[in-house]
């Protein structure tokens, strides 16, 4: 017997991993290429999250498959740099995740207040 009640979320809302969340957050500001993304994620997380090249490109590929990000050609084709930008679907996912975090933070703060009272 299962003791976990599963709530069905709307199909498009998926919980995000920290790496995916940080990639989307970084691209929410402006389009970036791979190395700029890596550095920005390190900076956003105050050095706590450092993505390896393998992890970064695995995540970028999944995000491209889901159409949450898009590739675009840069003017300078002499270098192997490809920029990525957030799609409207990716922005919606990011906003959904932020809302989920807000709800969780509010619930946690309420619990802490109750336990301290």
């Amino acid at each position: 017997m299962r003791h976990v009640v599963e709530r069905t979320e709307p199909a498009e809302v998926k919980p995000l991993s920290e790496a995916v969340f940080l990639i989307l957050l970084s691209l929410a500001e402006k389009p970036r290429h791979g190395y700029a993304l890596m550095r920005d994620i390190e900076s956003l997380s105050h050095g706590r999250v450092r993505l390896s090249t393998g992890t970064l490109y695995g995540a970028l590929r999944r995000l491209l498959d889901d159409e949450w990000i898009e590739r675009f050609e840069q003017e300078d084709t002499s270098r192997d740099k490809q920029a990525y930008r957030l799609t409207p679907a990716g922005r919606r996912q990011l906003q959904g995740e932020l809302e989920r975090m807000r709800q969780l933070t509010r619930a946690a703060a309420a619990r802490l207040r109750m336990s301290e009272a």
Binding site: S52, G58, R61, L64, D65, R71, F72
Partner: peptide
Amino acid sequence: AGAVALRAATLAGRSRIKPVLW
């Protein structure tokens, strides 16, 4: 780790590259 994960996803038919572009 990335290569192993991607090979597994490809074998399971869960990963494909689409010509998504901007």
